[in-house]
Computed example of a mutant assay.
Amino acid sequence: MHLKITTWNINSVRLRLDQVGRALDEIGPDILCLQETKCPDNCFPLEGLRAFGYPHIAQVGQKGYNGVAILSRFPFASVDPQAWCERSDARHIAVTLGPEAGKAAGFVVHNFYVPAGGDLPDPEINPKFAHKLQFLDEMRRWGRTREARPAILVGDLNVAPLEHDVWSHKQLLDVVSHTPIEIETLETLREEGGWIDGARRLTPEPTKIYTWWSYRSPNWAIANKGRRLDHAWLSSDLAGTLRSVDVHAATRSWTRPSDHVPVTASLEL
C-alpha cells in the first residue's frame, strides 16, 4: 500500500481555497494537513474542501489566526484536538485512521502548528518567544509518554534545526527559528520521542532544504534565502516504509501564495 501525507501552512484556507484544490490535484496525497487556516469553526469551508475528493475532515480553528485541519480520503476512527500551554489556540489536532485505511489502519497522524515566537530571541523580554519555548517543552514531555503505536507527526514546527536548513547558519544563529535554544529543544523532543526526520533521513546534509521563503523578499527564488520550517516525522517503527519526501517549491510562485510550500512524505506499507 502506498500512503502519501502532505503538510502545508496555507496562511488562510479561505483565501487560498483554489490553491488547495490545485495542490491536491497535482500532488494527490491521501492525507493533507493544513496549518494557519485562520478560520473560525463555523466558517470553515468544509463542503468546498470535500468537493476536492477528501470527504473526511477534522479541524479546529480560530478567527484570524492559527488553526489546523486534516483532510483525508480515509475515515477516522477518532479525532483528538489538544490544547497546549493552557491555551485553546488551535495548534494541534490528531486523528487515528480507521479500518478502511487498510495497512495504515490505526496509524495516528499529528498535525502541529508551533508558535512562531516573535522577533526577539529572549524569553525574558519577548512573551511570544517564551510561549514558543514552553510549547516545545510540552511537546517534549508529551512525546516521551505518548502511546507506542505507528505515528506520523507533520506541520509547521517553526524551527529550522540544522545548519543546512537555512540559507546562512552563521547569520541566522540569533534569528528566531534558528537559535541554539530552539534547535536544541526541537532536536531533543524529536530524539526523546523516537521520531525520525523524514527529509533528512533521505537527504542528509550538506544538501540544502527549504520550505519557507519570506514575503519580504520580492525576488525570493533568485535570493533563495529560505528556511526548513515544515517537517514530516515518523515513529521509528515506520522508518523502513519511507520512500520519499518532496518539497513542492513551485507553489511559492503561484499568484498570492503562502510563504510556505507543501511537503509530502510517501510511505510503502
Rank of each mutant, 00 (worst) to 15 (best):
N66D: 10
H178W: 10
W195E: 02
D41S: 11
F44W: 13
G117T: 11
Q35C: 14
F112W: 13
E187Q: 15
S168D: 15
V263A: 08
E138P: 03
Q59H: 14
G193H: 07
G226H: 08
E147A: 13
N219A: 07
R256V: 06
V79P: 04
K103R: 12
T7E: 06
L17F: 04
N126T: 04
R146T: 03
R243D: 10
D18H: 12
L238A: 11
E268H: 15
A232W: 01
I209F: 07
L133N: 12
A160C: 05
P29Y: 03
F44E: 06
V245A: 06
W142G: 05
G48P: 05
T251K: 00
T6F: 03
D122P: 07
L49G: 06
E36N: 07
V154G: 15
V245M: 04
E36S: 08
P123N: 08
I209R: 13
G53Q: 08
L234W: 12
E86T: 13
T255F: 13
H56I: 03
R200D: 02
A105F: 01
C43A: 15
V114G: 10
S258M: 11
G28I: 02
A58Y: 10
I181P: 00
E205M: 12
P123E: 11
R146S: 03
L189P: 02
W8P: 04
V60I: 15
N66W: 04
I10E: 02
R149V: 08
P180C: 07
V20C: 14
V247H: 14
D246Y: 01
L24A: 12
W142A: 13
V166W: 05
P81E: 07
R14C: 04
A105D: 11
